[in-house]
Design a protein around this nucleic acid. Structure first.
Lengths: 227, 227
DNA sequence: TTAATTGTTCTCAAAATGTTCACAAGTGGA
DNA sequence: TCCACTTGTGAACATTTTGAGAACAATTAA
């Protein structure tokens, strides 16, 4: 059982770690929680540590680690009244389907090689929890056939984990020169970044490291055939 | 967990080790991090070692080993009771999931060309309703690469609609001579039935109409990438 | 052994971060 | 109402992190 603030902080740390791999500093956490003094953060951190949700190295900068993740389900809005956020019990809810499903927003289409089409109105896609790991995810409809040899076809839905961290050989959503987002294999080569399509008809593209920003990595895929 | 520099260095080491198998030297790391002195690298290495991310042999050249990769979540709490199970908030979110999800049984694996492995204990897979049409469905884990050119990979989950009716060109679960079930393109040719793999390495197979029984047709596909 | 490579320490200095304390106030339960 | 906690704020202070350079030690190859 965490208090509202503790929960809020834990979620912030989690997300930050998922997305960048770098622990937030007290200063950053202070801002994220909209506080004006770091001492408050310090207390929250101690509380989280005491309760076993995080681990840390005292006196070390940015040395936080999440041991037990906060509930990832809903967005921000915990019940407005209570000051405490109950934790879901492991036994969970009976055979209720809800527990096995995660709802993720459909952010638009990603055309391999063409700008991403942002989608304002959030279409929501329920996805089996088993398909995703921890972290925040969103879906993109794949357009184009540049990843066809990786079994990713035009019209498929790519389930993407939001993160800036990816290893060589993983399929990522890469933002090229701040302009176009594309789904490709990521590869680093002596300081440069190469985006490899999975289609012999397309050429790998090489960029300077600062031209590419990884926005997420492929975590799952959905496809429907015509009924 | 890590500071920006520590993270940056760890990733460099990782990648370097993945690609060449040889540890970078301090000099190389210095350059990679754009530093002008090796002492900085030394400190970072110590920090990484202290935090358990790498191991090294002191005084030995190029003797680094990555113990824990940068993007891997924490040390997966050895909690016996996996409260790792993702939960959905009871109150749930706006677009009520229940109606958007259908639960289908996982019936086992279907090896393209090899008998189906029936699975007694029903694993249940919740699937977005949007992926399926009307009718009864079940899931099969795909084994083998005979449909690889159709974007169906080993390990994917095929969502199958139970039906005996299928049109030419559709992908079906076909029971061959009452023995083995296989996932293939269906084609009819003057009274005979041809099952086409989607892999140039495999041959189409032709059967008498009464040797083949269509058990279902492919309605959807799920895939997960390593998390 | 010599030379070349590679790792280890130390010092200086500045910037970034974490730690503590004291003072106030709000909440919920006994 | 009183007590035990949780929140918020500020500010002084303690440490760590980062960077640069240089001298020196250990290991390796020839």
């Amino acid at each position: 059982m965490l208090t509202r603030k503790q929960h809020e902080l834990l979620r912030f740390i989690q997300t930050r770690l998922d997305e960048t791999g770098i622990s937030p500093s007290f200063e950053e956490m202070k801002d994220a929680l909209d506080l004006k003094s770091k001492s408050g953060v310090h207390r929250l951190i101690s509380a989280l540590e005491e309760r076993g949700f995080i681990r840390r190295l005292p006196n070390r900068a940015r040395a936080l680690e999440v041991l037990r993740r906060a509930d990832e389900g809903g967005q921000t809005a915990p019940a407005a009244n209570s000051n405490v956020v109950p934790f879901a019990k492991p036994e969970a809810t009976a055979p209720a389907p809800a527990g096995d499903v995660i709802e993720i927003p459909l952010h638009g289409r990603i055309a391999a090689g063409v700008p991403i089409e942002a989608l304002e109105d959030q279409a929501i896609l329920p996805v089996p929890a088993a398909l995703l790991g921890p972290g925040e995810h969103y879906a993109l409809e794949v357009s184009g056939d540049s990843m066809i040899e990786a079994g990713i076809l035009d019209g498929d839905f790519a389930l993407v984990k939001r993160t800036e961290i990816a290893n060589d050989g993983e399929i990522v959503v890469a933002l090229v020169r701040g302009e176009e987002a594309t789904l490709k294999y990521l590869r680093r080569e002596n300081g440069m970044i190469r985006l490899d399509p999975a289609n012999a008809a397309y050429e790998p593209q090489i960029y300077a490291a600062n031209e590419i920003k990884v926005q997420g990595k492929l975590a799952g895929l959905l496809r429907r055939y015509f009924h």
